[in-house]
Amino acid sequence: MTYKLISNGKTLKGETTTEAVDAATAEKVFKQYANDNGVDGEWTYDDATKTFTVTE
Rank of each mutant, 00 (worst) to 15 (best):
E15D: 06
A23G: 04
G9L: 14
T55Q: 07
E15V: 15
A20P: 01
T44E: 10
M1T: 14
K10V: 12
Y45T: 00
F52P: 01
K50T: 03
V21C: 12
E15T: 12
V54T: 01
G9P: 05
T44R: 08
T55L: 08
E19W: 15
L5G: 02
V21G: 08
K4G: 03
K4V: 12
N35S: 14
A34N: 02
Y45G: 00
E56G: 06
T18M: 11
A26Y: 00
T17N: 05
N37S: 07
E19A: 09
Y33L: 11
D36F: 08
G9N: 08
K31R: 15
T51V: 06
T49H: 05
I6W: 04
G41P: 02
A48G: 08
T49M: 05
N35L: 15
L5P: 03
K28W: 09
A26K: 00
A34M: 11
S7I: 15
F52Q: 01
K31Q: 07
N8T: 11
E27S: 06
Y45E: 01
T18L: 13
K31G: 02
W43G: 00
K4Q: 05
K31P: 01
T17H: 09
E15F: 13
A48T: 12
A26Q: 00
M1S: 14
W43T: 00
A24Y: 09
N8K: 12
T16P: 04
D47M: 08
L12R: 07
T25M: 10
D40G: 08
V29D: 03
I6F: 06
Q32I: 09
K28C: 10
E42P: 04
Y3I: 04
D46P: 00
A24L: 11
D22R: 02
N37T: 06
L12C: 14
K13Y: 11
T51P: 00
D22T: 05
V39D: 02
T18E: 03
V29R: 10
D40S: 13
G38M: 06
A23I: 07
F30E: 01
V39T: 04
Y33A: 03
T55H: 09
Y45I: 00
K31T: 04
M1Q: 14
K13R: 13
Y33D: 01
V21H: 13
D22P: 00
K4H: 13
Y3F: 14
N37K: 11
F30W: 01
N37Q: 10
V54G: 00
T16K: 11
D47G: 07
F30A: 00
Y45P: 00
D40L: 13
D46V: 04
K10I: 13
T44P: 00
K4M: 07
K4D: 03
M1H: 14
V21T: 11
A48P: 06
V21P: 15
V39F: 11
T49I: 05
F52W: 06
T51N: 01
V29P: 00
K10W: 08
E42T: 13
V29I: 14
D36A: 12
G38H: 08
N35W: 14
V39W: 15
M1L: 10
T17V: 10
G41V: 03
Y33F: 11
Y33R: 03
Y3C: 04
T44C: 10
V29E: 06
L12G: 10
F30V: 01
K13S: 10
N35G: 10
T17D: 04
D46S: 05
L5N: 02
E56Q: 10
A24V: 11
L12E: 06
T49N: 08
A34W: 08
T16C: 15
K50L: 10
F52M: 01
D46G: 01
T17G: 03
V29F: 15
E42D: 12
M1E: 13
A34I: 08
T2R: 11
T25F: 06
N8S: 09
T11L: 12
T51I: 06
A20I: 02
Y33E: 02
G41C: 02
N37W: 13
T44M: 08
V29Y: 15
S7W: 15
A23T: 08
E15H: 10
